[in-house]
Amino acid sequence: MSPALLSVEGLRVGFRSADGGIVEAVRGVDFSVAPGEAVGIVGESGSGKSLSMLAVMRLLGAPARVTGGRVVFDGEDLVAADEKRMRALRGRDIAMVFQDPQSSLNPALTIGRQITDVVRAHRDVSATEARRIAAESLERVGIRDAGKRLASYPHEFSGGMRQRALIAMAIACRPRLLIADEPTTALDVTVQAQIVDLIAELRRELGLAVVFISHNLQLVAEIVDRVVVMYGGKVVEDGPVEAIERGPRHPYTGLLKACVPSLSGPVGPLTAIEGAPPRLGRLPAGCPFSPRCPDAIETCAREMPALIAEAGHRTACWRPR
């Protein structure tokens, strides 16, 4: 196996709560991404997906902060890096796109200006050259008349085009890692399919490693090599996409798959996961899924199952399937 491009080791993210204690939302997350690999991170909302990746980018806003662990990118610990170093890495080596393209763009600046700003922050090029690169990036993400579109403002773009523009900005400096946090959740399914195809295509052309966050396992499985499943601030399963699709080992992954109906096969009541995702600070001492798990035994709520690897497939469960 090649050395990891990104390695997240025992990452913890917490908040100072009203009573002065620390509430942890990310509770010891481990996973890695090889160069050029595409990894999907799935789980219900509140499982800590966004906070983990914001911690990787060092973009956590107060009151959230990293309370433990390391984030190693290309051999360098980012948790310990200074802000100047992070500014150099962000956009150039690691880029991130978010769910809501609207709020990630500055409404007062043209699309062209926003892309050229990123380009000039990382590359020693003239203004003309920066505009050429910006136009080329827009063209690469499938925006027609890219040269003219540089003068457009975000509101003149549709939601799908805005997301494309953000991806253009993200790839303008040819990063090695692209983190996409629910990049299609706010879009129509038809546009979602186009954006997913675009990310897969860019990955192949540019040799990008991709972390694709989503609550939709079916969507993620279309483009990733490996799936990391999170629940209650922990990784509960991590395996090759084929294995996760055919036979998930963790009961949560199995249920997460089963509760999404498909467009073929018999129609019947859906498998539901009873109860609600856990609330921070109200997690059991043991397996976070134990209050909702149909397979739970007495040990489950009391003792935390370790994330155990078996032939490249990791599962944290006392009774894996």
């Binding site: 063209e139 690469r140 499985a221 699709e245």
Partner: peptide, 24 residues
């Protein structure tokens, strides 16, 4: 609309769209 529904592994495109004309 039907084609756009995510279909998991079954939905993996065998061949991704051709790279765009711009040389990377």
């Amino acid at each position: 609309l039907i084609a756009a529904v995510p279909k998991g592994l079954a939905g993996r495109r065998k061949t991704w769209p051709a790279p765009s004309a711009v040389a990377p």
